[in-house]
Design a protein around this nucleic acid. Structure first.
Lengths: 184, 184
DNA sequence: TTAAAACATGTAATTAATAACATGTATAAA
DNA sequence: TTTATACATGTTATTAATTACATGTTTTAA
């Protein structure tokens, strides 16, 4: 397979925390969970049907306004059990993300290659923005440091920030090693 | 699409460095390039045909022993141009790898959750191994630090090592924050 | 009041990637 | 000499994911 259908467990996890509609699940990927996973609604709605057929979810219908119907999904007992099985199963660690930029560098052999500087600079700007964004996220969501009641979320935000900090430092150091060095 | 067919450029990059057979390309993913990308031969052989049809590759046939035939692929002029186009094009930066373990943490809210310690410990062991492996790689391949003639490769190995170092530090800090703390 | 933006839910077409199926040759070690 | 391992190249089936297609409602702001 292309992947091991991890999306099903994300959905299961989200609706276990609180029952949600397909639309709300889609929105979750624009916020929190989007920091480290992505999914479109065209993947979510079919998956909800599959999970309900599996008996891991049920839905109730709600009317908004005159006739707009939405389905709110909740995890069943077996769905919660499946979530726990996944959480406690061994996670194959990632060997190194598929980072297109890093891959490109592999094919640039010469330290004096003129393409290096613009490539590194563009990436640095982006990762500095993301680093700053994550710092704000962390300061907003966890102003008092680790939250014992949302510990996992705190941990992964910290991790994401550290990664971006490393990325920026690495790119800065690489730029400094270019011909002309730090005066460039 | 599931991805933007980056594999074609990896193949293009590898055969530009030196002409290679499908088998050799497959092996490349077990070594160097496997540190940050993966591909199976079942993906590589069809891709070679596609790239040749595009006019980006040509192949010559070689006989080993009595009759074992292998095809050695090289980049054409237009293939090299396509490679350069890709290298110089803007790379959409990765927002955060799809790390299944990190994702699981998101669904563990309680700092006292008994599942945390074994999860974090298992990951720590793995990432320490990988960190040590990368240290050896770097010491073996670049015993004198940055190599001006294989600069990109040096950079990405350094980056990979820093990432693993961060991963280990993060996991250790997380374990230390668990109830019982460092005496656990 | 009207138009834009957000809410809401689907399906279809395409592609990349993995796992499994399939076959055969050459070499090195027991 | 025989057997295991490495060399060598393909195809098929399946799945996950993205993009685009498709439709309609509700709310908010101009």
């Amino acid at each position: 397979m292309a992947q091991r259908n991890i999306l099903q467990f994300i959905i299961l996890g989200l609706v276990t925390d609180q029952p949600r509609t397909g639309y709300e699940l889609t929105k979750a990927f624009d916020n929190d969970i989007g920091e480290f996973w992505s999914a479109q609604h065209s993947q979510i709605y079919p998956q909800l049907k599959t999970l309900e057929a599996k008996g891991w979810l049920t839905h109730t219908e709600e009317i908004t306004g005159e006739k707009l119907n939405r389905k709110r999904y909740a995890a069943t007992k077996s769905g919660k059990a499946a979530l726990n099985d996944w959480l406690t199963a061994a996670s194959e660690p990632v060997s190194g993300a598929k980072d297109e930029f890093v891959l490109k560098l592999y094919f640039i052999h010469d330290q004096t290659d003129a393409r290096l500087k613009p490539m590194l600079t563009t990436q640095l700007i982006w990762h500095e923005q993301r680093r700053d964004h994550l710092r704000k996220q962390l300061a907003t969501k966890f102003p008092n440091g680790a939250d014992a009641l949302d510990f996992g979320h705190f941990l992964i935000l910290e991790h994401a920030l550290h990664r971006e900090e490393e990325y920026c430092q690495w790119l800065q150091a690489a730029l400094a090693q270019l011909p002309g060095g730090m005066t460039n």
